[in-house]
Amino acid sequence: MSERILVVEDEKKLADILAKYLEQSNYSVKVVYDGGEAISAYEAFQPNLILLDLMLPNVDGITICKHIRQRSIVPIVMTTAKVEEVDRLLGLELGADDYVCKPYSPREVVARVKAILRRVSFMQTPVEVQQNEGLVIDETTLFATFQSNKVSLTAVEFQLLHKLYMHPGRIYNRDQLMDSIYEDDRIVSDRTIDSHIKKVRKKLATIAPELEFIHSIYGVGYKFEHV
């Protein structure tokens, strides 16, 4: 059964071209041109990944992303014509897994989709649950658990935490962490990895508010420590 991609894009010509490229890569695609229809389409279609435009009629991409992320860890790729760095980071702060700036090549988007779905597929392969001094991370569910409390992570957030978690005490710089998340050698600012770290820390704080697992090393990077 082919994986399902939901495309939410109000530029009809662009959306249809993108859908054609995705279908040629053997994905099942549903296209929605209006933000007001995105949530119902998501619930009915149950996609494996969502390509979500930031600027949409009736309901914008930010609102849609927030709504879906409260209910699901389905991978979300934000697309936007806004190139300011704050707008690039906005989708990541909301819990999106990636972003693509317009104008973009449909082939580039398909490559991003394939890379993210490969990561998700790898993480869903049955593996032994990893635990470290009370903190447990589960690659099959993308949950982090401390004692009886648990929190869900996006694919990117989990991959970042897993990288640090598996080598406690080792310091990783931002480039090393970015390379472990994105496979396409893109050039992004240091603020992107900082945005991801901030999100992971915030989520871990909901299950262990008195503890700090990820430590900043000024001028160098980040490390995970036992607690």
Score class of each variant (00 low, 15 high):
residue 34 D to E: 13
residue 18 L to I: 07
residue 125 T to E: 14
residue 93 E to I: 03
residue 141 T to S: 15
residue 110 V to M: 05
residue 40 S to F: 08
residue 131 Q to G: 07
residue 128 E to L: 15
residue 38 A to D: 03
residue 112 R to K: 14
residue 104 Y to C: 06
residue 39 I to Y: 08
residue 116 I to N: 02
residue 54 L to M: 08
residue 111 A to R: 09
residue 121 S to P: 05
residue 46 Q to A: 10
residue 96 A to V: 06
residue 63 T to S: 12
residue 37 E to M: 12
residue 143 F to C: 11
residue 138 D to I: 05
residue 142 L to T: 02
residue 141 T to E: 08
residue 55 M to D: 04
residue 57 P to A: 03
residue 48 N to C: 01
residue 98 D to M: 05
residue 27 Y to Q: 00
residue 61 G to S: 03
residue 31 V to E: 04
residue 126 P to N: 10
residue 142 L to H: 06
residue 20 K to V: 07
residue 100 V to N: 01
residue 102 K to S: 12
residue 113 V to C: 08
residue 44 A to M: 10
residue 113 V to H: 03
residue 15 A to C: 12
residue 121 S to T: 15
residue 118 R to H: 11
residue 37 E to T: 07
residue 42 Y to W: 15
residue 28 S to E: 12
residue 51 L to T: 00
residue 65 C to F: 01
residue 33 Y to W: 06
residue 70 Q to T: 12
residue 126 P to Y: 12
residue 104 Y to P: 05
residue 51 L to S: 01
residue 121 S to K: 15
residue 36 G to K: 08
residue 66 K to C: 03
residue 70 Q to I: 05
residue 46 Q to L: 12
residue 56 L to S: 01
residue 37 E to D: 15
residue 94 L to G: 04
residue 101 C to A: 13
residue 86 V to N: 14
residue 100 V to C: 06
residue 17 I to C: 09
residue 114 K to N: 13
residue 16 D to N: 14
residue 106 P to T: 06
residue 130 Q to M: 15
residue 130 Q to I: 13
residue 18 L to M: 12
residue 16 D to T: 12
residue 86 V to H: 13
residue 33 Y to E: 09
residue 44 A to Q: 15
residue 77 V to R: 01
residue 65 C to Q: 01
residue 60 D to F: 02
residue 38 A to R: 02
residue 45 F to P: 04
residue 64 I to C: 03
residue 69 R to Y: 07
residue 32 V to M: 07
residue 21 Y to H: 14
residue 122 F to R: 15
residue 82 K to M: 14
residue 116 I to R: 03
residue 83 V to S: 14
residue 74 V to C: 13
residue 116 I to Q: 03
residue 120 V to L: 15
residue 137 I to M: 09
residue 49 L to Q: 00
residue 15 A to V: 12
residue 135 L to A: 08
residue 117 L to R: 07
residue 103 P to R: 09
residue 96 A to K: 02
residue 134 G to V: 10
residue 30 K to R: 11
residue 22 L to E: 04
residue 72 S to T: 07
residue 55 M to N: 06
residue 143 F to K: 14
residue 134 G to I: 11
residue 143 F to H: 13
